[in-house]
Design a protein around this nucleic acid. Structure first.
Lengths: 339, 339
DNA sequence: CTGAAAGCGCTTACAG
DNA sequence: CTGAAAGCGCTTACAG
């Protein structure tokens, strides 16, 4: 069906070896021959067979990306960043989603290894607390790059923001707005990202000598609006007094604010709120939500750059890299008491 | 590096042919041999080489998906739907984005054909008004499935909602709310989807005998908040009187509402607004935005189903299918005048 | 500078 | 029921 090297070779009455070399711009082909081949290939619209090439070179030029969630502003931006860098190469992106399930994640990793992808980029599932599958990736010499949800104990390439510092800043901001009893709707206990953000909250309290109250820490088992609502209802029903709230992600904050609005609790006057992630909706709701902005697009670009760098590095036996990205506190209506 | 059929064959002292057949569950292999091979393959974690298999079977089990935009609620849902169906098969999804550019779209199609994908699922770019690249796909016997932004003149598999009817309903709803001078922020002139939605608006005016006023039709060159703002400012500055507004997409409506809110024009009392798409933010803003809900997840699932069906059909030389999906008018604060 | 040949890992028609 | 052999389309070490 498709044209092959052989077809070109026959048409031009030369060998397939020479055609192959001409197309790959080897230096040991005469300029005349090279031009002849290139022109002809161009004219007939020759498309080399990627799979056959792989069989020889062992490079598929495929990259697997596993996201914990598809409808997630950060990950959409990360995808855009990766695709943007990738569009200048001949790599292709295979998209998979773990739905935050450990089992699905393992399954996808297995599938990607079977496909012989050259690299796997992953933000691990919230559930994931064992890492054999990631070690498997490394063993197979597939380049592994973690982003956002990472793991401390696996030595691999990573692109992160300083969650702990960011969360410190968010909490500090509330303190500067006069909050003294700050609730924290943290993520579950396993995820490193969740732990880091919680630590940042604690750091800020400590730094500003505000007593840490265990009962003001509520755990969100999922990053959903519903979990935000559930926890805020718990706060109100237990009559836990808070005047500020930091959350592990904007969706949680949204749920919490929803409950507060229904109960006519004034935001930010009675309770000031800061989210995390700068989801698109945060600037649209009312009051608009203060949050931590992470540059997902840049994150995606860095992920791909680290992959490329890593390909060179493995030849040199270099250690994996960790790239730290900047973040930004975005102050909006939900936390801005002073004018 | 990786284990191959040959390794298994040697270990079990049988031929690679037999190993291959055993693994593929051919019937002309003795149960004993089959079991032996399967057990051993399982034990050593054998992963057949996908690319080598392709070289023989000419099936890559890869599917290319080209989206006009990544951060787009509908397309995120479509992706989820496709991935959901796909996860029960051994197909993999290669993600590409045209950024609504005709040139990029053409480039991506070329790349996918070179990769020998088994199918291409695409919502075409707003710019796209020539279709040679789609015909190319068909010529190469790659299964083509269009969704959302489609083309009338290409006979291929499609998954659509009845945009015209949906837009009729949106406009009719405004009329039933008492609107008589309904503005329309339509999409650009090329896209079939945009045309269909505009026709639905016209249909409704005609049906309810409301005079069509050309000056109330403004064109949005992009599906962005900024375009919605720009057009609403134009309406106000030209002092064009409207009491209702339908828009080609929710983002446009968002921009328009923003301008109205700034100028203290009451929504829905003075101007009632209906969007299109039921983006997540529409229920979060205030007033919440009435809109047309499209089931993107279902759309994605149907796209994949059509692909699978089409593989059988091509053998039978059947004609391509068009799948029409249901939609729903979601009435919210932005258009609800009566209680 | 050119080309014959081997081989990547699988599948499958064919012979026995 | 089993296996030898050819071949998918490319790349590349080697000979000339």
């Amino acid at each position: 069906m498709n044209l092959t090297l052989k077809d070109i070779a026959q048409a031009l009455e030369i060998s397939t070896s020479t055609v192959s070399k001409a197309l790959k711009n080897y230096k040991d082909v005469s300029p005349t021959t090279k031009k002849k081949v290139l022109d002809y290939a161009e004219r007939i619209g020759f498309k080399p067979n990627a799979q056959a090439a792989f069989l020889r070179t062992q490079k598929t030029k495929l990259i697997g990306v596993i996201l914990p969630k598809i409808e997630h502003d950060l990950y959409c931006e990360v995808l855009k960043g990766i695709l943007n860098k990738m569009s200048q190469t001949d790599y292709k992106l295979i998209l998979l989603c773990s739905e935050n399930s450990f089992e699905i994640e393992k399954k996808h990793i297995r599938e990607l290894l079977q496909l012989n992808v050259d690299g796997i980029f992953i933000s691990i599932a919230l559930e994931t607390n064992r890492f054999d599958h990631l070690k498997e990736v490394q063993k197979s010499n597939t380049i592994l790059v973690l982003f956002d949800h990472y793991v401390k104990i696996i030595a691999t390439n990573r692109v992160l923001i300083e969650d702990r510092k960011a969360s410190f800043l968010a909490t500090e901001h509330l303190i500067q707005q006069g909050c003294q009893k700050i609730g924290c709707f943290r993520g579950e206990l396993i995820s490193q990202t969740s732990i880091d953000r919680f630590m940042g909250y604690k750091d800020a309290l400590e730094y500003y000598k505000i007593p840490f109250q265990k009962e003001l820490i509520l755990i969100c088992n999922e990053e959903t609006i519903a979990e935000g609502k559930r926890n805020m209802i718990e706060i109100l029903e237990k009559k836990l007094e808070i005047d500020g709230l930091v959350t592990v992600t904007d969706l949680i904050a949204l749920g919490a604010m929803d409950v507060l609005k229904q109960r006519r609790v004034k935001i930010p006057e009675e309770i000031a709120v800061v989210g995390f992630g700068n989801w698109k909706f945060t600037s649209l709701i009312s009051p608009s939500l203060s949050t931590i902005d992470q540059n997902g697009f840049l994150m995606g670009e860095k992920v791909f750059e680290l992959f490329e760098k890593s390909q060179e590095d493995t030849l040199l036996n270099e250690l994996p890299n960790t790239e730290i990205l900047p973040f930004q506190l975005v102050v909006r209506g939900s936390s801005c008491r002073k004018k």
